[in-house]
Nucleic acid binder design. Sequence first.
DNA 1: GCACAATCGATAAATTTTTATCGATTCTTA
DNA 2: TAAGAATCGATAAAAATTTATCGATTGTGC
Lengths: 212, 212
Amino acid sequence: MKNGETAVSKATVSRMPAYLRYLKGEAGKGVEYVSSAAIAKDLGLSAVGVRKDLALVSSRPGKPRFGFEIKLLIEDIEKFLGYHRWTNAVIVGAGGLGRAILAYEGFENYGIHVIAAFDASPAKVGAVGGKPVYPMEQLPEIARRNHIRVAILTVPRSAAQEACDEIVAAGIGAIMNFAPVHLHVPEGVAVKYEDLAVSLAELCGECAGNQI
Amino acid sequence: MKNGETAVSKATVSRMPAYLRYLKGEAGKGVEYVSSAAIAKDLGLSAVGVRKDLALVSSRPGKPRFGFEIKLLIEDIEKFLGYHRWTNAVIVGAGGLGRAILAYEGFENYGIHVIAAFDASPAKVGAVGGKPVYPMEQLPEIARRNHIRVAILTVPRSAAQEACDEIVAAGIGAIMNFAPVHLHVPEGVAVKYEDLAVSLAELCGECAGNQI
DNA sequence: GCACAATCGATAAATTTTTATCGATTCTTA
DNA sequence: TAAGAATCGATAAAAATTTATCGATTGTGC
C-alpha cells in the first residue's frame, strides 16, 4: 500500500522461491500443468493461498480443469523476482566458505555474476575455479569499474565490521553477511544475515518440536 | 494457540536471532543495559514491537529508566531458541561447500556438534579440519550410533533427492538443504531450504528496489 | 524530598495475512 | 450436445500481526 507499485506482500514474495523450486522440479519430470491444490499439498500450504499468490505474479490466469501452465509460471516468477536483471557481485573473504561460494556455479541461473573475490591476506590472492582473488585494496576500483552492487561477506567475525565498512566505502549497496555479527551500516545499505549456525539451530528446533 | 504451550508467534521467533546478534555485539562493547528504543532504531523495527517480543522470552522485566539487562537477555533468548540442548549433525556431500561447513567452527556456540561428513565418492573420504569424512554407506550406522538428528545436504542438485532418501532412511528427521531442488520427504521430516542463489537474488531485489 | 524525564507493560485500534465460501469457466464423456 | 467434475477467481470472514495510546514505575538532579 506504499504508493501504487508493489502491492505484493512480503510473505508472498518469500514463498516464491519455494514455488519456483517446485515448479522446476515438476517441469523436469515432463509435467505441463499443475493445479493449486497439488502445489499446496506438496508444499504444505493451503490451496487458496497458492491461488492468491500465483494470481499476483501470473501473466495469464490458470485454466479451469487444468490448473496453471508450469512453463509460463516459471517465467513469470523469475521475472517477478528479477532474475532477468543481471547483477554483478563479489566475495569479500577468500577463506573456506568464500572459496566454496566462488567456485559455486549456481548463481548464473539467477541472474547473478560473481566476478571475483577479495582478501586482506596476500597469501590468498590468486584464483579459484577460474575466478580471480584480488587483494582487498583493489576493491574500490574494481567494484566501481564493474558496477558491483552486491558483496558476499565471508570473513571471520572479528574482521566483519571493518570489511563491511570497506564494502560500503566502495559504493556497494547490498551485503550478504555470513559472519554471525550485527553490522552497522549507513541508511540505504541493505544487509541480509545468513548465519548458518542460526539457520541450523532453527531447524533443530523445528525438528525437536519442543520436546527433549 | 495450538494447545497451551508456545503462544509465541512465528514472526517473533524469526526476529530472535537478530536480537541475539545485536545484543552480543553490544555486550562485547561493554554495554550493560539497552532500551527497546535503541534496539528498535538499530535494527529498523518499532520500539513497541521490540518490547512485545522481549516480554515473551525475558525471564525478568525490563527496568524503567534503564531498559533490559543485556547479559540476562542473551541467556534468555539462547535458552528460548534451544541453544542449550545439544544436537548432533552431519554433512552429506563433501564437495567445496560441504568441506567449508565442516571446517566452520561457529556451530558450537549454538549447541550444535557437526561430527562428520559423508560422501558417495571414495576419493573424498578422509578428513577435513580434524573431522572425518566417511563413505555414504556408513551413514545409517553412524547416524544411529551418534543420535544424529540433523543433516546438512551439500551435494549437487542431481544427487539431492537420492541423498535425501538415504538421510531419511537413516532415521534423520531434519535436513538443511543447500541444493536448489524441492525435496520430497515423508511426513514428519523437516526440510529447510538454504538456496544461496535465491538468498542473493532476494538481496539484489531489495538493493535495487524495483528500479533498473 | 519532590518534580521531571525516560522507560516499561498492558490494553486497544488498525493493518495485514490467512482461511473459507461460492458462483463462473472449461474440458471430458456419454 | 448436454450433464458432470475439477478448477479457478473474487468476495467475505477470521485470525494474526503490527502499530498506537496511556497509565505506572524508577532513577536523577535540584
